[in-house]
């Protein structure tokens, strides 16, 4: 509920803060007690599976939804009425926007430019999102990636102090995704504050200064990507599986006792080990398996990622939701 505890008011360095945010749809709580503070000039990521409440939270920040409880402060202001003055300082990209098919790219950008008292020139926006060549093309003829970049352009046209990007690369091909990343990185170098949601851990790791891992409408972990990965206590992950007959004989305690192993997670006939040093853990693992008479049917190792952080925290994968 709104408490108005001014002693706990966010520091003035916050471009965006929220406290105790709750939003329910019927019996389902999309957001259940979310606390966040985004600093000026940082790129902040909300990382979580589909249905974690990221979009609902962002739309509350954007003043498009009204929370059932909690407070939001955006650029030092609160949402009141249609908030036109505050909106002039924000850039907003929704998850999906269908611009009118028959309008030309430059016409769409010009239209959005007309809403902002100050901002970038239309031609600069077109070059910023790499659509100069498509300026005269009808929206209908654009590829998915180009449409997404047009949408990004419309969010940038007011030269916003704070930019919201909701799943900016979902459904894009790898090349379009990299182009979008480069645009966001360009904004970071210009000192803009960005809040983005994503369920791609690579995206969060590459773009975000800090990441909040969100699940079931709550922040379950917060920090820089490096800190979050370090919180696993080890930097590598070893995954292996054994045949059906042998899986019953393998005790987690045996694996936990192996050198350099920090954590063990089991999913049926396959295991995930969080390990400090692969070169010590793997030979010991193979020996242990051989002693149990279990032949590994699969074995792989990788550097720990945000995905592993999410799995360690929730036992689920990001993509599975």
């Amino acid at each position: 509920m709104t408490t108005g505890e001014n002693t706990q008011a966010p520091a003035p360095t916050s471009a965006l803060s929220c406290k105790g945010l709750v939003k329910r749809y019927g019996d389902v709580a999309a957001v259940s007690g979310l606390d966040l503070a985004v600093r000026y000039g940082e790129c902040f990521g909300l990382l979580g599976p589909n249905g974690a409440g990221k979009t609902t939270a962002v739309e509350i920040f954007e003043g498009l939804r009204v929370p059932d409880a909690g407070e939001v402060e955006v650029l030092g202001g609160r949402w009141r009425g249609d908030g036109v003055a505050l909106r002039a300082r924000l850039g907003i990209q929704l998850q999906e926007t269908k611009f009118p098919d028959k309008l030309r790219v430059s016409e769409v950008v010009t239209l959005f430019r007309s809403f902002y008292p100050r901002g970038l020139a239309v031609e600069d926006v077109l070059s910023l999102v790499g659509l100069e060549e498509k300026a005269g093309a009808h929206v209908r003829t654009l590829s998915g990636g180009q449409k997404q970049r047009l949408s990004l352009g419309c969010a940038l046209v007011g030269d916003p102090e704070l930019l919201f990007l909701d799943e900016p690369t979902t459904g894009l091909d790898p090349q379009s995704r990299r182009q979008t990343w480069e645009i966001v990185e360009g904004l970071k170098t210009r000192g803009r504050t960005v809040l983005l949601t994503t369920h791609y851990m690579e995206e969060a790791a590459r773009l975000c200064d800090r990441v909040a891992v969100v699940d079931h409408g709550k922040v379950i972990a917060l920090g820089t990507p490096r800190e979050l990965i370090a919180s696993l206590g080890a930097e590598h992950v070893v995954e292996f599986a054994v045949g059906d007959g042998a899986s019953a004989t393998i005790e987690d305690s045996i694996l936990r006792a192996l050198p350099s192993v920090e954590d063990v997670a089991r999913d049926g006939g396959s295991w995930r080990l969080t390990v400090r040093e692969v070169h010590r853990a793997v030979p010991a693992l193979l020996t242990a398996l051989a002693e149990q008479g279990a032949e590994p049917t699969a074995l792989s190792t990788h550097h720990a990622t945000l995905e592993d952080v999410f799995m360690t925290l929730t036992g689920r994968r990001l993509r599975d939701g």
Binding site: L64, D82, V84, L86, R87, L94, T97, F99, F115
Partner: peptide
């Protein structure tokens, strides 16, 4: 699009 327009100033 309507939502996007409402999100704009």
């Amino acid at each position: 699009l309507l939502k996007r327009l409402v999100a704009a100033p």
